[in-house]
Nucleic acid binder design. Sequence first.
DNA 1: GGATATTAATCAAACGATTGATTAATTTTG
DNA 2: CAAAATTAATCAATCGTTTGATTAATATCC
Lengths: 208, 208
Amino acid sequence: MKTEKIDKRQAIIDAAEKLFCETGYEGTSTRQISKESGANMAMINYYFGSKEGVFIEIMNDRIASFGSQLKIINEDKISAIEKLHRVIEGYATRILANPSFHKMMHRELSLSQRPEMYNKIKAAMSQNMQLLEKILTDGQEDGSFREADNRLVIATIMGTITNIIISPQKVMPDSDFDLNVPKDKKIMKDRVVAHLQDLLTVYLTTKK
Amino acid sequence: MKTEKIDKRQAIIDAAEKLFCETGYEGTSTRQISKESGANMAMINYYFGSKEGVFIEIMNDRIASFGSQLKIINEDKISAIEKLHRVIEGYATRILANPSFHKMMHRELSLSQRPEMYNKIKAAMSQNMQLLEKILTDGQEDGSFREADNRLVIATIMGTITNIIISPQKVMPDSDFDLNVPKDKKIMKDRVVAHLQDLLTVYLTTKK
DNA sequence: GGATATTAATCAAACGATTGATTAATTTTG
DNA sequence: CAAAATTAATCAATCGTTTGATTAATATCC
């Protein structure tokens, strides 16, 4: 027996997010959303005004929760390298908590069709970037980190995680492997965190 | 005066590639392709059978030229680190030669709607991956490289380059910066190559 | 070599299907 | 009962594709 959705509005959001992740924004029709959510087609426009309205709502929700999770890692007690490790761990955790959405976000960023969305995503990401950049420069100023192209160091951290999200089978050739399965997700998270922490620790703390 | 396209077939391919890159596959209509190429709509189906046929043709062309460029870097005379440097340089050069297409390829990979294409892209990438993996294991066997999570090292190289392709303004906040401008492209290429070579040299050759 | 087939390329028009959106009527709720 | 929620039916617009006809070039025949 199917669970009755009490809130059709939320049902639409859930269904739309699932479909947008799977088949993209353009590739998803309002009728699909209607069928998947169990709501009448007109409900989409009734609650969100338009198909794009649903999309914007989803992105805003996710981006909001994404930003609010940002912990204050700048406790003065811990070292720069320890801060870096925590940011990597936190970033990987957040991305891997919902790989499908992150893929969709990246597609949207890569297409940059909706300028409003594009700027929101950029703004959300820049929080992490600023935090990372500060950690790097602080470490460099107190001499614990080497000088580096910090923007590209950040691109390396984010790019590595995004890369394994988009093509995890490159890392895990096992055909059964599925990032949506909690167990597999944890395996991948631990592995990418270990790799990035190791890589950046060696790189940033090795004397020239 | 506008240059007359002699080959309409090629005009369709050129127009479609431009539009697919800009607005995505689903976001591009056959009428847009027709208008942009100056060819009649029917010519699309006449030459390629379908809209998807055009897309597949474009991808096949690009992937073919992508694979054929793969140089034999395994000259025994040079060291593992030198080989690594050359692969990084070559990979960055190829990706930055056509950032728009690479973005489109990544979107396609991320959506994985067309399994045939998905496998082709994977196969094309795996050439680079195998070459990289061999260089890494060879270096590790002869003791010049440290032990590492090689698959993730590869993910780091590819992910870093992809990341700066998709959001170059994160690296270059200058609003004028445009990866399609040759000068800017060169600046970015040199920078990402220098960063990756530096990063991986330090990481792989530092004694534990 | 001139008339006659044959072919490839191109076109405007139309096809049925699907798109996102809206209407007006109906049901549910408070 | 009034407001909010939900429905089926319908809208114009656009989608990818197909059609039948036309042009221009090439090949074949006598």
